[in-house]
Design a protein around this nucleic acid. Structure first.
Lengths: 256, 256
DNA sequence: CCTCGCTTCCCGTTCAATGAGAACTTTCAC
DNA sequence: GTGAAAGTTCTCATTGAACGGGAAGCGAGG
């Protein structure tokens, strides 16, 4: 754009505006957006107007801004995530039926685990993650699975980057993380007691695109158990079976 | 942007690029995008690159472009559609279980019906519509329901606009449509035999935001029956019950 | 070897986007 | 009722980012 004080592309700014929305803030005033996206008032107002006429945002009569229908529509017109979710729904429901805890599916996105599907039993314990929210890679079972099978450069970048401590059990030493990842690769699952929150244990397995051990890992399937639950390895076995079901429903992974 | 030949806003163009994707075309080359979005080659390439670094698009190793994870993520961070889908899933599954045909939920979007959720039984007949696809308002049961409860100006614009004929039973006369709409309002449902395709009958009812007859209509719940099925009115009654369930799970509609 | 289509790089032109500011409206506290 | 605070809608001069034609590079296919 002409004259941007900070030398950003228009696209960047549009995304920044859209990214000010979250599961908690689904409606906000243009001024709030300006503040949260660090944009000058008048600029924010103009961008909001543009996005509104494009349908990516909607303004309700009160003047508050929400994410627009068209954004949802575009995202549903053929993202990979949709195929993945579709393939995963059945197997995830089976897992859910037999284990009765939160069941999650996550993919690797820009150094974090992005949750793409989640089934939760009302009877199950408290839950942190929601669909479309992100989790740290080094401190969650899904994250470790994704990281273990990520390309070398991505893995190293995360391992060497700052590793935030969530609980006393969080792995914050690069070497410790590398060890854990090697074990995940060897066993085929990750079991993480109390790494994010003291009270729960995460169990996760890789989901591959297509059959075969060598097929690329595209997602991690996980459940969150209460810490005191025994038999996490039995749970891992259940997950592994479900993961194979998902894999076989997925187009073969030479594509990705 | 500086120099745009056609006086469009940047945002418009970005959306045009994103809109070249569809359920059928989930991957395309930048050049294809250029052609379909009617953009000069170099411009399309640049925009694709921008959108890619912003995460709204992804390029696979082959060079083909796909919708990016981040687009999906943003759309799932608090659109109204999500609430609606969530509230509707249970009741829709009940409908599905008792009727065993395609069950759909649609909202009004810019002069068309946008399908936001769909459950389909493998045993059910052929199906046209997918999630995130659009249907004409004047020729479908969902469409007529939405149109019947739309603001006056929207309704008149559609009724007076061109009404495409799909089959011999499609309503293409403005006055006929107005009559149909009045009946939909009076009875509380729409039954459309053979309007889109000769072989099927659509049945739809309004879904309101919150309890009470006066609450605003936010969606249409419908099923597609084989034309020869008897008892469409019994089906409408089942739908109406489900719609009330959905409504009660929805935040009260003074908001919208 | 040549052709054809896609992609990438280059570069002069230009006007859309920009953002400070002022005026106006709504909201709320007292 | 009055005043302050916050949000919104304008205006407008400035300017560099976006634009797009063109050429060069790349690769597949005949």
């Amino acid at each position: 754009m002409a004259n941007s004080a900070s030398g950003e592309s228009v696209t960047e700014r549009l995304v920044r505006v859209l990214a000010t929305f979250s599961s908690d803030r689904t409606a906000q005033t243009p001024s709030e957006i300006a503040r949260r996206a660090h944009l000058p008032m008048s600029t924010a107002h103009r961008i909001v107007e543009d996005l509104t006429t494009a349908g990516l945002l909607d303004r309700d009569p009160r003047g508050e801004v929400r994410l627009g229908l068209r954004l949802w529509e575009l995202a549903h017109r053929g993202s990979e995530v949709l195929r993945l979710r579709e393939a995963a729904r059945g197997p995830m429901e089976q897992v859910q039926a037999s284990i009765r805890e939160h069941t999650q599916l996550a993919v690797l996105e820009n150094g974090e685990a992005l949750i793409v599907e989640r089934l939760s039993d009302p009877q199950a314990g408290l839950n942190i993650a929601r669909v479309a929210s992100r989790l740290p890679l080094h401190a969650t079972s899904s994250g470790l699975v994704l990281l273990a099978h990520a390309p070398d450069d991505v893995r190293e970048q995360v391992v060497q980057g700052p590793l935030r401590r969530h609980t006393a059990h969080t792995l914050v030493d690069p070497q410790a993380v590398r060890h854990a990842l090697a074990e995940v690769r060897a066993t085929g699952w990750a079991i993480c007691p109390g790494m994010v929150s003291e009270a729960s244990t995460g169990v996760a397995v890789p989901v591959r695109a297509g059959a075969g051990r060598g097929a690329p890992v595209v997602a991690a399937l996980s459940v969150v158990l209460p810490r005191e639950a025994e038999a996490p390895r039995a749970v891992a076995a259940v997950l592994a079976r479900a993961a194979r079901l998902i894999s076989s429903a997925l187009p073969d992974g030479r594509a990705a």
